[in-house]
């Protein structure tokens, strides 16, 4: 069996690309708000204004002639991340973990030279990675330090936590673990492991790589069963707060746990992908339906997190969220 029956998928509440584009993105994400998340500098600024922790900005480059300044900008830092401001899907992100004279080392251990970085920056500025090939800017951020809780769960990279926030309510989450196959990137289609995370507890539910179930990390062989994400409440609250910050009804918040600074937001996405359903072995549709039937959106992110934790916890509650919702909603 290589193909699932559409009927069954629908009964599990799996949302497809067409439905996502039509029923979620175009309905809940007003076009004019896109720049807030497509432009990572704007997102960063917004987040800082909202008091949300973000990775430290080390520098920005806007024009091709700025490339000459690159060496100066980079000199004081041993570790850094270079990102296109308007990149999408993790494209064009260059991570340098060590700097030794002329050589810069990638997480994989490959060494590159300053000219390579300069070319990369120049490509970004020319718009190679931006949507529609428009000229772009480059931002240089501090490198996130791996939280020891993830040691053994990540290979050559920093795992990030993707939380889908629908109208301010976190409805689904997954942990994306870098692998050797994904070249240190946390992109599922490149071979990163997606671990579905229980909204109620922050515990791992189930993990997939390339769409197939895995029980332990393919490189470190560590099993996922005892994985629990610390600061889970804080992470959920940060994600929930992004709704007020951006106004986007359907967004994917990418968060990380920094060893020193704790939970922080690295990126927001107005068109979050659907692989999260595979990692969670659950469909988004029932959870979206729960939120859609709410009469009013609670203005307090903390209250929304509490609601979500109660609604969407799969570990504590044997009931499906749908049934639970009707009972919860009726007396009001």
């Amino acid at each position: 069996m290589f193909l699932a029956s559409p009927k069954k998928l629908r009964s599990f509440g799996i949302i497809g690309m067409n439905q996502r584009n039509f029923g979620l993105i175009s309905r809940y994400n007003p076009r004019h708000l896109y720049p807030l998340v497509d432009d990572k500098l704007k997102t960063k600024l917004l987040a800082q204004q909202a008091g949300i922790t973000v990775p430290k900005l080390l520098g920005t480059l806007h024009y091709q002639h700025d490339v000459k300044l690159l060496q100066e900008v980079l000199r004081p830092y041993n570790q850094f991340v270079i990102k296109p401001v308007k990149g999408s899907g993790g494209k064009g992100i260059l991570v340098i973990v060590e700097h030794d004279h002329n050589l810069y080392f990638k997480p994989s251990g490959d060494a590159i030279q300053l000219v390579d970085i300069e070319r990369h920056v120049s490509n970004i500025l020319s718009g190679l990675h931006s949507l529609g090939g428009k000229p772009d800017s480059v931002m240089i951020e501090s490198l996130i330090q791996l939280d020891p809780v993830f040691s053994g769960y990540s290979y050559e990279g920093i795992p990030d936590i993707r939380i889908i926030v629908f109208r301010g309510y976190p409805i689904m989450a997954m942990l994306r673990l870098t692998t050797h196959a994904s070249d240190g990137k946390a992109n599922l289609h490149q071979g990163a492991v997606g671990v579905g995370i229980d909204i109620g507890t922050g515990g791992a539910l189930h993990a997939v790589q390339f769409g197939e179930t895995v029980l332990h990390h393919p490189d470190t062989r560590k099993t996922f069963s005892e994985l629990f994400i610390p600061h889970w409440d804080k992470l959920l609250q940060l994600a929930a707060a992004c709704y007020e910050m951006t106004g986007l009804g359907y967004l994917g918040a990418d968060l990380v746990l920094d060893r020193d600074q704790g939970p922080m937001i690295i990126e927001l996405n107005a068109r979050p992908g659907l692989s999260i359903q595979v990692a969670n072995y659950a469909g988004l549709a029932p959870r979206v339906a729960v939120i859609e039937t709410l009469k009013a959106i609670d203005p307090d992110p903390q209250a929304r997190v509490i609601f979500s934790k109660k609604q969407f916890s799969t570990v504590l509650n044997p009931h499906t969220p749908r049934l639970q919702h009707t009972r919860y909603d009726d007396p009001r």
């Binding site: 069996m1 290589f2 193909l3 699932a4 069954k8 998928l9 799996i14 690309m17 067409n18 072995y281």
Partner: peptide, 22 residues
Amino acid sequence: GQYTGYRLSELYRFHSLERRNV
């Protein structure tokens, strides 16, 4: 443009989900 059903490729993409749920 109004079709919101699954794409054929998604039936493959999500096929592991079906097995698990069954």
